[in-house]
Amino acid sequence: MIRLQNIEKVYRTDTIETLALNSVSLDVAKGEFLSIMGPSGCGKSTLLNIMGLLDVPSKGSIKIADRVTENLNDKQLAQFRNKTLGFIFQSYHLINDLQVLDNVELPLLYRDTTAKERKMLATEALEKVGLANRVKHFPTQLSGGQRQRVAIARAIVGKPDIILADEPTGNLDSAMGNEIMDILINLNRNEGTTIVMVTHDENMAHKTHRLVRLFDGSQVQ
């Protein structure tokens, strides 16, 4: 589903060059739930961003859903992300000015859908994360766990093949973290969604199919 080959990422400023990723190669199979671990600054998030086509590698090639993505322009990239990828972030990144339902509908805005379809799909996604009764709330009226569930609903509303989760439980206590984890596991099991998750939490990582460890930009396991 995802194939990374010899990915290198270098950050350059006027005086220093930082090697964030050093020749990382990774294959993620369809339907796999993979977790990436490693200390802070080891390049986990950079790797995830590259997989999510939010960042470009300095070297190496990426293939996602059998598609080479290097030569896509801004619009094509946007469309590709919209159809194939769903994101979950540590700090949720919900739009506080919009109600829960509008937040969840967001990915559908960039597709050919009617308002009615959007509402239906978003409600469906919210039901899956158990928040069907919170559609009219604003994100600030929800707890951290609930917010992350809204974020998951937003990530799955467009039925993407791949979900990329950057420390989805990082801001939550363990009970809430487990809840979120259960939702992700069910999603992977029942819908066959491929999930790549970056985490600091060994317990969470062990619940996934496979664990990849990074250290100083290199893959160590």
Binding site: G52, L54, D74, A78, Q79, N82, G86, F87, H93, L109
Partner: peptide, 13 residues
């Protein structure tokens, strides 16, 4: 802006 872009908004949109 980041979220919208991640979920498929192009710069033009």
């Amino acid at each position: 802006i980041g979220v919208r872009k991640a979920f498929g908004a192009s710069s033009k949109t």
